[in-house]
Write a protein that binds this DNA or RNA. Structure first.
Lengths: 220, 220, 220, 220
DNA sequence: GATGAATGAGAATTCATTCAT
DNA sequence: CATGAATGAATTCTCATTCAT
């Protein structure tokens, strides 16, 4: 995908170091929060001297921001692929839901940080998240939104709410389950079957157990 | 609830002072985050000396914790009342949704903090939220859960997912909308009509615009 | 002179502390130079905690700058008085010379710092000396200049150079002697008799040993 | 002077490198001060690696000291030559004055540093200037002193002060003018005509405009 | 021999907390 | 009892120096 290939040993080494630093910092930040992690701790965990950290990152905030940017990139990419998957709108949403779950298992720390920062609005960054990050998150939501829109247009989905509202709802239901899972993995699982979540929004639409019974009956 | 009534002037005065301190701290914490607020700032805003703050609260964390406890109490009480409302399960949920919206307008700062802390899992508290707070939040979720359960039992709701999952979903959809609203009040409003949210979960059930068309038709 | 008098005990106390801090810092700076003195050292010498230093001064540079300003003020005032002295132009210059000498004995540390900063152009202040300080030093030179000018006009002094050049010369001869004195007090004294210095510039004019004899005579 | 000639290519190369390093460092030190110049900056400007700097100089202070020694050597040599010039005492002093001026134009950076260090007593060197440097500076002053002494003896100069005092005075008048020049080249020039400075000290003696006129006349 | 990445001691600064008045 | 000045531990960041390649 990238036209790389020719990285000198030196460059590869530097990249590896950078990755190690980011990994150590990510782990600590996601576990203890920005303000409860000192540069010395990060250095120690990454097995470098503090000074070396500062060769790679201008300051603590820059280090944090770099993590956020790289991981948002990763998240964006992963989710993008999920939504690129062939299939109809339902299939895409199914992919969205299950990929959100997969992402956690792959990078728990990232997701943890993502939740603190994006869902909870932490105050780690004085100036707030980078525009670039916000842009990516918005893009993702817009993709979801247009999937809902097109699904509605094709009459696959009933227009039970505006597409963007549906997108927000879906995002947040997923996040809610993930959060619970992270907080108490014993007792909470992220639904293995994405339809559990989709059913919440589209029970009438998703073919499956709860589908056939006419909704009608209930209130009459 | 408590057998109040007999508070000496002294005691009433102290309570007032305490309330002022908590209010000042709440405002600042919710706006700048725990670590970007100093005890001196709080003291100044509350118009007390720092020393006085320490007469009321053991330390900064205790002050923060106290806010969380009091405000969770308030939130719990408000939401509890909403769910106590007469009416069937649908009515109760409607009340839940709209009360969540009302709560924001009444105590924006509280909700802001609540979101950082509960939704995002901030790291203001080293040791995490108090058990007492967690207990209350769980209670609230359990009430929601049993509303869903009873609704399903009464066949008002279709059993599209487990009651607790539905509760989590509802909570998070609401939070999602509230968060967006807080972040950009210009462009995002919390749905004035609670049914917008409930429709997402129960479009087949809530009587209304999108109800009648049989969901069935579309894919089969 | 100042309309003070009514300083609360608190204020007087604060002033005293500030003075102590400045004194400790002056002593250290003048002996070791800006960059070889740490805030902790200053705090220790002044018998305060570092934090207290920062209550009085925004940062290290501010502390240094404050010293420079206060001491330049003092120096300016002392020299100004010297030049205010009654008497003709010769008398004023005599006063200038001897007061420069007195100033050293009174505040050796100040003069030491003054020399590093003003004569040598140190690099303690990134942004250079305050305009206020430079203004005062220029004023002093201008006063000297006009004394020379008026002396020349009155034909007390021969116009051997431009008045400002004479002022610069006088300043620097004095500084030169002072510097030598400070560096090696054993072997160098600042001329007790100001005429020694004035004679260098005005040997033909200052009444005294070298005065009356026609210059011609000198080699007879 | 030294029995040079036989330097291997290797050695010549090393000398050239050393010179480049010293030149880069001189430029930076004289402009920003010892403590505001990092070894990395010097290395970069000299186009070497830091490590290489340390092959030539034990440490930062040694580098600085080396500059001072080499440049003092140069200055000493230049001034020595000036004083070697044929001619009587007056001629020699004239040469001293004008050579001081020439030196600035040739090596402004050196003079800048010289002033900070020698005139101002900077604190770049913890242990003060090298004895060797001090010795050279003293030698120069002694030469000046003996010129004054011999001039007085020959009755070319009137004994308006002790020879050494005259030497100090002359040195400092020159330095004073040079400093002003360096600080504000627009508005201050070093007297092109050395007699301007010499007149200040010897107006009665230097043949010229102010020489013959009887000093007597003046105050009557 | 040259390089420059890595090191870590040291300095400035902040802020929760204490305690004399 | 309230006050707020004083404290000093902890944190971020820099830069002279070293040493493996």
């Amino acid at each position: 995908m990238t036209p790389v290939k020719k990285l000198s040993r030196r460059e590869r080494e530097r990249l590896r170091q950078r990755r190690d630093m980011l990994a150590a910092a990510l782990e600590l930040f996601s576990r203890n929060g920005y303000y409860n992690v000192s540069m010395n701790e990060i250095a120690e965990k990454a097995e470098f001297a503090v000074g070396t950290l500062y060769k790679f990152f201008k300051n603590k905030e820059d280090l944090y921001r770099s993590i956020m940017i790289e991981e948002t990139d990763w998240f964006h990419k992963v989710m993008d692929q999920a939504l690129d998957s062939g299939g109809d709108e339902i299939e895409k949403l199914r992919n969205y839901v299950s990929t959100r779950g997969v992402a956690v298992t792959e990078k728990e720390a990232v997701v943890r940080l993502y939740h603190a920062e994006v869902r909870g609005r932490s105050f780690n960054l004085r100036a707030g998240l980078d525009d670039e990050i916000i842009k990516q998150l918005n893009e993702l939501r817009e993709r979801l939104t247009s999937i809902f829109a097109s699904g509605i247009k094709k009459k696959i989905f009933r227009p039970i709410a505006e597409p963007r509202q549906l997108a927000v709802a879906l995002e947040n239901i997923c996040s809610g389950f993930i959060m619970r899972w992270l907080e108490d993995p014993q007792n909470n699982k992220y639904p293995e079957e994405p339809d559990v979540i989709l059913n919440i929004i589209f029970q009438g639409l998703i073919p499956g157990e709860y589908h056939s019974p006419r909704p009608a009956a209930q209130n009459s």
